[in-house]
């Protein structure tokens, strides 16, 4: 035997919980690329990926178009290969496009910047499973300093 008041309050409690979950899902979490939309995969081989991680974002002119899905090492030449999941909306990047590992701000996270290349008849469009050939590796601070000192010494 439970009273109407108890039923009402329990209903209210559950509704409040659902409302809060909706609030968290819609207002707090990133709603765009959460892996639910249609994507296609591209691959890119780097010499050094620096601090790039799985789920790092891929941006074109600052707009997020996808995320890094997987990073592994090519066992033949021991170079890291990144598997990229690109939003299916953006499906006509030419194969002359270049990819570089950039850093947001001085201390920020590393992300991939995609620079779309030129288009003419000889150039194909990147599709599922293609490799982006033109890649620039991450800047490694120690190497930079080393190069700087070396060039100083040459003068």
């Amino acid at each position: 035997m439970i009273s109407k008041k108890v039923e009402l309050l329990v209903g209210f409690f559950v509704a409040l919980g659902i409302a809060a979950l909706m609030f968290l899902a819609l207002n707090v979490a990133s709603s765009g690329m959460s892996g639910s939309g249609e994507t296609y995969n591209l691959y890119a081989k780097f010499q050094n990926i620096g601090g790039l991680k799985v789920r790092s974002s891929i941006k074109v002119g600052g707009v997020v178009i996808g995320r890094v899905e997987e990073i592994k090492l090519d066992t033949e030449d021991y170079a890291p290969v990144a598997k990229l999941a690109i939003d299916a909306k953006y499906n006509n990047f030419p194969d002359t496009s270049s990819l570089s590992i950039l850093t947001s701000g001085l201390l920020g996270e590393q992300y991939l910047g995609l620079e779309p290349g030129f288009i003419d008849e000889t150039v194909g469009i990147l599709g599922e499973g293609d490799f982006i050939e033109d890649t620039k590796s991450a800047l490694v601070l120690e190497e930079l300093i080393g190069q700087f000192l070396f060039s100083q010494g040459n003068e």
Partner: peptide, 15 residues
Amino acid sequence: FWSIMQASVQFEGDI
């Protein structure tokens, strides 16, 4: 406040 929050919070990963 909200946009940086949204960029870093993931539904599956965090919530």
